[in-house]
Design a protein around this nucleic acid. Structure first.
Length: 639
DNA sequence: CGACTTTGACCCGCGC
DNA sequence: GCGCGGGTCAAAGTCG
């Protein structure tokens, strides 16, 4: 059937007659069709004859004229027609069985040979067919009979064809529109999912912290109860509970009892939330008797970090609000232990304070006074920092009232072209697309850091082992410094090597030691734990640049002496490195965002590393810029 | 006029 | 206890 149609309409639109156009033609040629139907016995012939039938009707010759105008043909005519048709169908069927194109060619040849050769007899019908084929190509000048009918049919055919094409076009447009909508929806879902993942990670960290704090607190209480005289133990208990019960607080209390030497760690971890209900009384007393007492004993609203709050509530409120001001920067962090949380403070708010303690610094070469990260900032201060002739500027996020996110911007003293931007805190508002990459990057880095720094369940790891485990690769892409009193992840994008190329080279030589890689299988337990235990190390380096099978490669100077090892890291870290690379490469964050998103999207495949690389490099970012590099520097409270 | 920046003063914690 | 440094405030100035 299809081949038959195809043969008949080879010079025309083949698919056209294969579809719905046929009925209309048949209607106009019903009489003729009946004739041929009667003359054809087998379904095959009939099938094959459909094309011939149409041809005869559309391009009637003498015999067609007879067919249309005269009574039903005689048996001779039927026989003649049948013979022709049979011959034709069989021939074509044979040809078509071999090769469709050959069959078409055969018809074409027949059409050429029959042109103007209206031989009588059995070839008459054939002539009609050939005329049809030729006329289909060249027009109606050959037709001598009933031009009006033919033109009508052709017009209808054309119209139908156009209608059908239009319908198809419309369908395609609709489908295109649907695809576009789907793409937009997928993009939106991706953004939402990304933010959801971040929030989930934070929640997990909070839960971990709470569990760890409870465990440690209980253990410490038992320890105190078992040792020394009970009065002193109770005294100590209340003391550290006043400082803000937490794992860190507990440990700090021990330190305070012993040598009172871990102020930095205390600052780092003391804000860790824990509201032990048993301590409420003590907390209340301490809170109201604090040197920075609350007005009327009303707890400060921890959620109110707005600039208006800062202005309206002057210093008393600032000091009273551990989360409003003191949760972020060093000096304020120091206030946290003293001020403790109001008893009414929800437990889940405290981890927020912990989160805000982590900083993410981005070192990037930029001539601009500030890198474009998509957020709106308001400068609220500037100070001359020691050891740096360049002033340090303080900015606060103004995209939402109460957003606790702040950042410091300072140029590097050694290289004025390097701009150091330190972010702290989590946004409490939806981020514009341009800000998503940086926000997710900093959040991921902070999560990576805090996930471990706050977990104390397994804090007895060998530091040397940790150094090797955390920093397995021979790269200087990151360092852990003891200079900062709080965990700070620095994404150094200023090195002269191409970070992506470095990633490639590193990925090819890494091996995964199970024993140590297990420490990194879960970022909350392994990697962060390592960071936590490395808090007394200095000069350790960890790299976030390497991404192999969703794992980030961590590098340490100590590990430089070790064999190359691979440690699985969260894919989020991959996006961190990729995004930061893109950010640095292009001050225009829009392009960087595209690169980051592309890199994230590319994480799905087995070649995700390459995808990351290619995605970042596919942007306008000069990835090949030798000044680009991913370096992660973690600053921890040192000894 | 509102938003933003500048800048001196202030507060606080830490180290000596 | 004092000085230092970090961080913030808030009045004054600037800008669109």
């Amino acid at each position: 059937m299809e081949k038959g149609w195809g043969l008949t309409l080879d010079s025309d639109s083949r698919g056209f007659f294969l579809n719905k156009q046929l009925p209309s033609v048949i209607d106009h040629t019903s009489s003729k069709r009946n004739i041929f139907c009667n003359t054809t016995d087998s379904p095959k012939t009939m099938t094959m004859f459909s094309g011939v039938e149409l041809s005869a009707v559309r391009f009637p010759r003498r015999e067609d004229q007879l067919s249309l105008t005269m009574p039903p043909p005689s048996s001779d005519e039927n026989r003649a027609a049948t013979s022709v048709v049979d011959f034709f169908s069989e021939k074509n069927r044979t040809v078509n069985d071999r090769d469709d194109s050959k069959a078409v060619a055969a018809v074409s040849v027949k059409k050429e040979s029959s042109h103007g050769e209206a031989t009588p007899g059995p070839s008459n019908l054939n002539t009609g067919l050939n005329l049809h084929l030729r006329t289909a190509n060249t027009g109606s000048d050959e037709s001598t009979v009933d031009d009006g009918v033919k033109s009508d049919i052709e017009d209808k055919l054309t119209k139908n064809k156009m209608v059908r094409l239009q319908v198809e076009l419309q369908n395609m447009n609709d489908e295109n529109q649907k695809l576009k909508e789907m793409l937009a929806q997928v993009s939106n879902n991706y953004s939402a999912l990304q933010m959801h993942v971040v929030s989930i990670m934070q929640q997990q960290q909070q839960l971990q912290q709470q569990q760890n704090h409870r465990t440690d607190t209980a253990q410490l209480i038992q320890h105190h109860q078992m040792n020394n005289n009970k009065d002193q133990e109770v005294k100590h208990e209340r003391q550290f509970l006043d400082l803000g019960p937490s794992t860190a607080t507990v440990e700090t209390t021990d330190d305070q009892v012993s040598n009172n030497s871990s102020s930095s760690e205390e600052r780092t971890r003391s804000a860790t939330p824990q509201n032990n209900n048993n301590n409420n009384i003590v907390q209340d007393v301490k809170y109201n008797n604090s040197t920075t007492t609350l007005k009327d004993g009303i707890p400060f609203d921890n959620q109110d970090h707005s600039s208006a709050s800062y202005r309206d509530c002057k210093r008393v409120n600032r000091d009273e609000s551990p989360e409003s001001e003191s949760q972020g920067w060093a000096s304020n962090n120091n206030k946290v232990p003293k001020l403790n949380h109001p008893p009414s403070k929800p437990i889940e708010q405290s981890p927020d304070a912990t989160m805000r303690k982590a900083r993410v610094s981005v070192r990037a070469r930029s001539e601009a006074p500030m890198i474009t990260d998509g957020c709106q900032w308001r400068k609220y201060g500037q100070k001359m920092a020691k050891g740096n002739p360049c002033p340090r500027a303080y900015y606060r996020c103004t995209m939402a009232v109460g957003c606790p996110v702040r950042k410091q911007v300072q140029r590097c003293a050694e290289d004025r072209t390097i701009l150091i931007t330190t972010y702290e805190g989590n946004h409490i508002h939806p981020l514009p697309p341009a800000a998503m990459a940086m926000a997710s990057t900093t959040t991921a880095a902070a999560n990576m850091l805090l996930s471990g720094s706050m977990s104390s369940a397994d804090g007895l790891m060998n530091p040397n082992l940790l150094a090797r485990a955390i920093l397995p690769c021979s790269s200087n892409m990151a360092t852990i410094s003891a200079s900062a009193p709080f965990p700070t992840v620095t994404l150094d994008l200023t090195n002269n090597s191409n970070p992506l190329q470095m990633l490639r080279s590193q990925q090819t030589q890494f091996q995964v030691p199970l024993g140590q890689s297990q420490n990194f299988a879960t970022p909350h337990n392994g990697f962060g734990q390592g960071l936590y235990n490395q808090s007394k190390f200095s000069g350790l380096q960890l790299s976030s640049a390497g991404a192999q099978d969703n794992h980030m490669q961590n590098v340490s100077s100590a590990a430089q002496l070790q064999a190359h090892q691979t440690h699985p890291q969260p894919s989020l870290a991959d996006s961190v490195s990729a995004a930061t690379a893109a950010i640095t490469a292009d001050p225009n964050f829009t392009a960087a965002l595209a690169a980051a998103i592309s890199s994230i999207i590319g994480n799905n495949g087995t070649n995700q590393n390459n995808n990351n690389i290619n995605a970042a490099g596919s942007t306008a970012n000069p990835i090949s810029n030798p000044n680009n590099n991913n370096k992660m520097i973690s600053n921890f409270p040192g000894n």
